[in-house]
């Protein structure tokens, strides 16, 4: 079994490097995410048809979340046994197994992160510019309105049903 020794300072530098590798794509993704707050994400490029020009307008809603953690096992148990026995504590290099046999290394560290997000877009209106002037035509989503109607109707029917039910007798 081949063993190499890594200094704790080198180990923490390695962890910092891996953390930076995680943070970089997170920041890049966040920058892209912030772009949805621009006007260009709401108004699309104009479409020309004869003398008429149409600009579609949409509502954009986006959410994003990240989480990450970096840690090392060196600080917890490093030199603990020596302290318990009352011996002088000195910094020793951390031994990390490179044998690949799955044996536990005396020290180590690592990091990880994850995240998720979603962006919703919904057409709201269309700006039409023609020879007779400029007007804003709303885009009506009949499905959403119907769903809201049936939800409200269900709530009202439910309440009416509760009204008709005879009150509970108290014994």
């Amino acid at each position: 079994m081949k063993e190499t020794s890594i200094n704790p300072v080198e180990l923490s530098a390695m962890i910092e490097k891996s953390a930076a590798a995680i943070v970089e794509p997170v920041e890049r993704t966040l920058e892209h995410f912030l772009e949805i707050a621009s006007v260009k994400s709401v108004y699309d490029s104009p479409v020309k048809h004869g003398e008429t020009m149409i600009i579609p307008a949409a509502e954009v809603l986006g959410g994003l979340g990240f989480g990450m953690g970096v840690g090392t096992a060196v600080g917890e148990n490093f030199g603990k046994k020596d302290k318990e026995e009352g011996a002088e504590v000195e910094e020793k290099p951390v031994e990390i197994s490179q044998s690949g046999t799955g044996e536990k290394a005396p020290g180590g560290g690592g990091g990880g992160g994850g995240g998720g997000g979603r962006v919703f877009a919904r057409p709201v209106a269309v700006i039409i510019s023609g020879p007779d002037g400029v007007r804003v035509e709303p885009v009506v989503d009949a499905t959403k309105i119907a769903l809201a109607f049936f939800t409200a109707l269900g709530f009202m029917v439910g309440m009416a049903g509760r009204m008709r039910r005879p009150p509970r007798s108290q014994e």
Binding site: L30, I36, V39, A57, E59, G63, G115
Partner: peptide, 24 residues
């Protein structure tokens, strides 16, 4: 024609994410 949009940005501290609502 000059279009205007309103953006509501709610950003979590430490670049941990956020919420953006942008509408015309």
């Amino acid at each position: 024609i000059t279009p205007f949009s309103q953006a509501v940005k709610l950003l979590l501290p430490g670049s941990r994410g956020g919420l953006i609502w942008n509408r015309p």
